[in-house]
Design a protein around this nucleic acid. Structure first.
Lengths: 333, 333
DNA sequence: CTGTTAGCGCGTTCAA
DNA sequence: TTGAACGCGCTAACAG
């Protein structure tokens, strides 16, 4: 409640001097400093960030946009991003964009209103133009908005290829492929490459497309149940963590053995695939690295000093669990 | 970039009039409004929230503190809280407090520095006094800081009792009880009541205490493995979701059948217990209701109009899955 | 109905 | 080494 003026008055000095003491800027005589410091203590003075922000035209806040904070991938991403940004002195404003698309717009507008210094977006329900309008200080996770906006993503091409290699070397003949991430997102790359490799090798593919904006587990179960009903003789599955787990568990319930009768390869490999039995083979994105890179990139953008690459692509890692037979990945298939 | 003065100048009016148009306050002639609106459009003027915030001494931001955003319970809580607060016109600043305890302090200090209008904390690594110093506009999830700070929580007493009833009616004789949530947290209540009921009925209890601040799944596996090694003949488990799952899967791997040889009751019942096979019996907290209540409570505190109850306790719900035999819960045992 | 002015609390010249 | 004055952009009170 006390302001810098109160402190100045109490210490019998001018506000400028108090300001210098607080910020450790400029010269200040040792004894006036003492006086001021004790005045600060007595009044329990704390600088008002709002006034500082107005002056500096900065808040130190970065907006982080994700479709759904309760999705394991995005909650992990949000967590790591917050940690990275905090270390750099920034705070994080978070937003779930799923469900209402003008929430994403709302948050983008905060850039214009100076409420946030930058935005990291893992949500992509808006048209490119809305993003381009703001230009600077936006970093995109896994979607290419063109040269104006830097993107950070994983090597999904390699990921899709690795999944295909595992499936092939496990000798699957009829593979269920559950797709359905947001349109325009780089993560889709894995699907195309996966299917083309399998097709090349004469493996039958059953495609199941989920609505990309359904994140509740009921939708996953429904999709898996539909796959089980519609189609017989599946001996391999490639899907994101959650649909993969649902399908696997339904198949097990129906008496299939994993990995003997059914091989499972999941994409992302979040904790959820580790807490299950058997532990799932998966292609893992390096979420911490993605988050750190998003954080450092947005900070560089804000500082405006360094140039940043348009694309920064992180490796994915293959985790061979118990839902496939172990194979050597050497690219020969 | 353009300020309200630029707009005023361009429209040939005073800043006050522009302000009135923007905020829809006071009277303004139709044609001057037109002029101003077109000036706004031409200059692509957007009000600077920072200046507004300074004037109103408000940011519209609520800080949400959780130990770990990547823990299923807290990510769900954060998600629901953000949604509820957004509907009420507030934004959410998020903080992971695990790992370094002065992060929590940092965020509490934001109250004093006017960076946030209020705080909802599900993290409790600090001493009570630090919370009491700020008094108002703090809402605590699941911890009682005394009469000054409203708390919102679940009926863990009922939860512990229900778990005990299920275990008893499933005729378990030797039960593994994994404990270890943060100290001083209401969630601990379930442990005491659970153990006392089981003891009353002569059921043997094996206690396993986990470090409360370990949230990575490795810690859960370690704990489960230790339990398996140390102790034989366990026919029932009561634990939080993740340790319960780890133990269950290890036991299954060792050839135990669920629920024939081993009954499992998990606490929280997050998605992770639904994506597993067999689906786990659980005591579920109503996270959306908790979040909504935290949100509305902190808003009432900010508005200062209504009084708020010191404690608001939500019911938990019993979800009978496939890891126990179905029983009727009537409190007779 | 409208323009002017006085803050909101702070950081920074710029003289002294 | 220091204090006074100005400005960040906006809102609200007041006078016209």
């Amino acid at each position: 409640m006390a302001s810098i003026r109160d402190v100045a008055q109490k210490a019998g000095v001018g506000v400028g001097t108090v300001s210098r003491v607080i910020n450790g800027s400029g010269y200040v005589a040792e004894d006036t400093r003492k006086k001021i410091e004790s005045a600060i203590r007595e009044l329990e003075y704390t600088p008002n960030e709002l006034a500082r922000n107005l002056f500096k035209n900065r808040t130190g806040i970065i907006g982080v946009l994700v479709p759904d904070l309760d999705h394991p991938f995005f909650s992990a991403f949000a967590r790591e991003t917050e940690i990275a940004l905090y270390k750099a002195g920034y705070k994080v404003m978070i937003c779930n964009t799923i469900g209402s698309s003008n929430r994403e717009l709302d948050y983008l507008n905060m850039l214009d209103r100076n409420m946030v210094d930058g935005i990291i977006t893992g949500s992509h329900t808006l048209h490119v133009e809305e993003y381009l309008k703001r230009k600077r200080t936006i970093v995109s996770l896994d979607q290419d908005f063109g040269p104006e906006i830097p993107m950070v993503g994983s090597d999904h091409i390699y990921g899709g290829r690795a999944a295909a290699e595992i499936i092939l070397k496990n000798k699957c003949r009829k593979v269920l492929h559950i797709t359905g991430v947001a349109p325009n997102v780089a993560a889709n790359d894995r699907h195309a490459i996966f299917e083309s490799i399998l097709a090349e090798h004469g493996v039958e593919i059953v495609d199941l497309m989920m609505e990309w904006n359904k994140f509740d587990h009921q939708a996953y179960w429904d999709a898996a149940r539909e796959a089980i009903r519609k189609c017989d003789g599946i001996d391999g599955v490639f899907a994101a963590d959650q649909p993969a787990l649902c399908y696997m568990h339904l198949a097990m319930e129906a008496g299939k053995r994993v990995p003997e009768d059914l091989k499972v390869v999941a994409y992302d490999g979040m904790d959820i695939t580790r807490l299950c039995y058997p532990q799932v083979t998966s292609i893992d994105q390096n979420i911490r690295f993605l988050a750190d890179t998003c954080a450092s990139t947005v900070i560089k953008l804000i500082d405006g000093s360094e140039r940043v690459p348009h694309k920064q692509i992180m490796s994915v890692e293959v985790h061979q669990g118990k839902t496939t037979n172990p194979v050597v990945l050497d690219g020969n298939f």
